[in-house]
Design a protein around this nucleic acid. Structure first.
Length: 132
DNA sequence: GAAGTGACCGGGG
DNA sequence: CCCCCGGCCACTT
C-alpha cells in the first residue's frame, strides 16, 4: 500500500463516530490541501472495514451516489440529515490540535520527530451541543 | 509524456 | 436553490 493511501486511511480512522469530514478536509489533514479528488479515488477503492469511509462526505454534506448504504450507516450513528444531505452544522468534525504531547519520549535528549497523529477522541459528538 | 478518468471544490450565474 | 466550469491531484492507458 502506498504512503498516500496509508495516510488517508489514518486520517479517516480518526473521524469520530457520529461525525463526518469532507474529502477536502481529509486531504488537508493528510497534508495535501488540494487533493480532495485524490481522496475520493482512495475511498473508491477502500475495502478495509477498519476505515470508516462512510464518514467522508462532500463539502456541502451530500453523499456519493454510488456509495449505497452510506446514508444508512451514518443514520445508525445518529448523524443528522437535512433532506438528502448531512446537517454539517451538527455533524461536521471540528478538528482540533492534538495535545502538546504529554507522552513525548523522555529517554534521550534528542527530540523525537514523529508525525502528528490526529486523535479520534477529539470532538466527540454531543447531542446537547449547539453551534453558533 | 500526453490524455483521460473520478466517491472533489469553490465560485459564478 | 440549482447547474456548470475551471482547477485540482493521483492513477492508469
Amino acid at each position: 500500500m502506498d504512503p498516500w493511501t496509508r495516510t488517508v486511511y489514518e486520517v479517516v480512522r480518526a473521524i469520530p463516530k457520529g461525525r463526518v469530514a469532507s474529502y477536502g478536509l481529509v486531504a488537508m489533514l493528510a497534508g495535501r490541501a488540494r487533493a480532495a479528488r485524490a481522496v475520493g479515488n482512495v475511498m473508491l477503492e477502500c475495502r478495509d472495514p477498519s476505515v470508516p469511509c462512510h464518514r467522508v462526505v462532500h463539502a456541502d454534506g451530500s453523499l456519493a451516489p454510488t456509495f449505497r448504504d452510506q446514508r444508512a450507516r451514518l443514520r445508525r450513528e445518529d448523524v443528522a440529515f437535512r433532506g438528502a444531505r448531512v446537517d454539517l452544522e451538527r455533524a461536521l468534525w471540528a478538528v482540533r490540535l492534538p495535545r502538546a504531547d504529554a507522552r513525548a519520549d523522555v529517554r534521550g535528549r534528542r527530540a523525537v520527530r514523529r508525525r502528528v497523529r490526529v486523535s479520534s477522541s477529539f470532538d466527540a459528538p454531543s447531542s446537547r451541543r449547539t453551534i453558533r
